[in-house]
Structure formats: C-alpha cells, structure tokens
Amino acid sequence: MYKYWWKIVACVLVFYSSVAGFLMEVPVLPILNETIRNLYFHVPMWFVMVVLFSISVFYSVKYLATNKQDYDTRAVESVNVGLLFSILGLVTGAIWARFTWGQFWSFDAKQTFAAIAILLYFAYITLRNAIDEEQKRAKIAAVYNIFAFPMMVVLLFVLPRMQDSLHPGNGGNPGFNAYDLDSRMRMVFYPACIGWVMIGYWIYTLRYRLNIIKNHN
C-alpha cells in the first residue's frame, strides 16, 4: 500500500476531474460556451508533456555523468510517453479550436510552435534509430536531448507570447485566470493537472519496467 498509494490518488483525481468537469457548473461566456470544459483536458496534457520531457533531460544529464544504460532507458521512455501526451494535447486543442475558432487547424502561433516542438522530439527518436551501437546511441541521444530542451522551452513559452495568437495569455490576450477561471473551475482544474501528471508518470514507469524485463530475456 505504501508504494502505490499515489496511483490510487491519480485515478481518483482523474476520475473526479472527468466527472466534475462535465457535470459541474461553469461560467457562461460568449463563443466559449460549454467548450470551456475542455480546459480540464487540453491544458493538463501539455503539463504532463513538459514534466515528462523534464524528467527525460534530467536522466540524460545523469547518463552523461555516469554512463549507466539504465538512465538512457528512462530518458527515452519518458520522451515516448511525453510524445503521446503532446499528440493528445494537439488533438484536444484542435477539437476545441474547431468549435471556437472555426477550424481544426488555423496556423495559430502557438499551434505551429507546439507542432515544431513535437518535431524536435521526433527528430530525437529518428536520431536514436539511426545509430545501432547502444553505448554510442545513448550518448549522442543524450547530448541532443539536452541541446533540444532549451529550444523546446523557447518554442512553447517564449515565442508564442510575442506573436499574435488566438490562445489566451499570448500576443497581448489576457490569460485565462484574468476573466473566467473562477474559483469553481479551479476546484476541478488543479486536481485534473495533478492527476494527469501522475498518470503520465505512471505510464512512463510501466514502460520503463517493461523495457527492463525485455532486456533481461
């Protein structure tokens, strides 16, 4: 029990946020209307991605410091799961955009930069596939991962703020909390973020452990 209590917490939080997200009252706003409920699903996906990519960079640094193959496995698995969540974030965002901005993909600044950031990590996977030798692959991939991470941060958090964007909080738009994230929504939004981050971490540990079993046989 003492070891997997957090998994139960994660499930409870995600379950709560999904049910409450659809059933609880939300502020009625023009254009957004009921789609504002997507906030509980779209934004946490990106939080999970950033957390997982940070974990990956942490283990890449550790790999370069110690040369333990184990850290490389952790780094690549967290990138894999992070990519999954980034695609989920892109899809939920596209659906939201369909109903508020009129189309799935409108080349909004933040959409474009998020897509480029994802490309960055696909490049990481491609780089890994291009090298056969395990030690060499681990080292070069770790170097690229560390080099790419600051760029990802610039792409997602610096550049969109300077461009005209339809996203709240960018290009001079007020952030969400300025006008509609009232305390009722916070009651669902924060648990959703924490819950999804824990779920993402859980998936990553599962994949990592699976990888270890595969390597043993």
């Binding site: 480029i116 490309l119 960055l120 490049a123 790419a148 760029m151 792409l155 550049l159």
Partner: peptide
Amino acid sequence: AILSFPLIIP
C-alpha cells in the same frame, strides 16, 4: 536536416 530544422525554425 532532420535534427537541425526544428531547432533553427524558432
């Protein structure tokens, strides 16, 4: 090309 384009685009 694969590695550098996503880095240079921003």
